[in-house]
Design a protein around this nucleic acid. Structure first.
Lengths: 192, 192
DNA sequence: GGAAAATTTCCGTGATTTCGGAATTTCATG
DNA sequence: CATGAAATTCCGAAATCACGGAAATTTTCC
């Protein structure tokens, strides 16, 4: 394999072998077992796990299915904090000047932006939050804590009460608004 | 390339060529241009885009960098529902017999299991929820709506009040429990 | 239309992956 | 410490990927 470790980006590939081996061992599988499961030969699996060959996406795909690992995450860097991170109520970052009559509390860490954002949004009476389209494939997951809200995504409109949940694509203009009196909602944005 | 389209999963790979070509054309780049940018030869890029060969992850990686596309998302299927999905309070699926004195309301759709799970958990006084370790890299993101809770992840323990948020890795045993009186929390599980 | 330029596909060659089986190592057990 | 079984690594041969240059196609412009 041609490993010209010149660019730091390339080294991400060097993580793959160990990750695969770990995944297999964690499941207590032998090379032979995954070979049968994945259709990739024992020897190939061995070579790949030792970084002696750079697999075709086809074979890598088969391996990930057999090992039940997420193909997507396989190439990402690993840099998660170790312990419990606590964000106190008083210290939650706020966005006050978005929309009208609403304050957005940012509960997710900056590192996760784009993959996984969590917000606690509080609307005053008649509060409204208008959003421009995000990236294609992005979705929002909204649950009402208190009050009533109206969701508009593209053409469609829905009314939600306490405890209700809505999920919708946000690669289009969308609006959240308090319906009659104040409201509080919990919002998870996925793949924005 | 050996495209034995027997399993439906395999067809995900067939999406890759078009996606790459689209990405390139959208940027208005020629084969030659991406060849120079990525270090992959013109002809190879052409073959890959036409599905006539299944690239090595090494070369695919170089391509993604040149085209500035997300390697992770490149292999994901596209099957998200189009409109707003609503889940009414009364119809939220419940897990009653997990832990003691707590009921878990499942807010995320079954399709998302493993990537992105959202729960609304309600504890009675002294309620407790014990969980076995999940997959490595998994994290939980917990926000307290009402009451006080105690989080235990591995050795570490934290006490949270209303509005507080905690994030922690869950590739280890972890416990959530109501601290003094009942509590309600919002839980997002990532990459479980 | 026709010629020039650019873009893409085809083709021969060398490097790399992939496979199946043999050889080696590791591990449990008496 | 010997022995057998299991797991892993080594070793050809066949298949496929990857490259650079030539042919073919498409685009542009007069």
């Amino acid at each position: 394999m041609t490993d010209n470790s010149s660019t730091p980006e390339t080294e991400v590939l060097s993580l793959l072998p160990t990750r695969l081996r770990t995944a297999r061992r964690d499941k207590g599988l032998s090379l032979d077992a995954v070979a049968k499961l994945s259709g990739v030969s024992r020897s190939m699996v061995s070579q790949i796990e030792r970084g002696e060959s750079s697999p075709t996406i086809a074979t890598l795909w088969n391996l990930t299915r057999a090992l039940q690992v997420d193909f997507a995450g396989l190439l990402e860097g690993v840099d998660e904090p170790a312990g419990i991170e606590v964000l106190r109520n008083a210290h939650v970052p706020l966005i006050a000047n978005a929309g009208q009559g609403c304050s957005i509390r940012i509960l997710s860490p900056p590192e996760e932006v784009g993959r996984h954002e969590v917000y606690d949004i509080r609307f005053k009476e008649n509060g409204i939050l208008d959003s421009a389209p995000h990236k294609r494939g992005a979705r929002e997951h909204l649950t009402v804590i208190t009050g009533n809200v109206r969701i508009k995504a593209g053409q469609q409109v829905e009314l939600l009460g306490p405890g209700d949940t809505a999920r919708y694509p946000v690669d289009q203009p969308h609006t959240i608004s308090a319906e009659a009196g104040p409201a509080q909602v919990f919002l998870v944005v996925q793949d924005a």
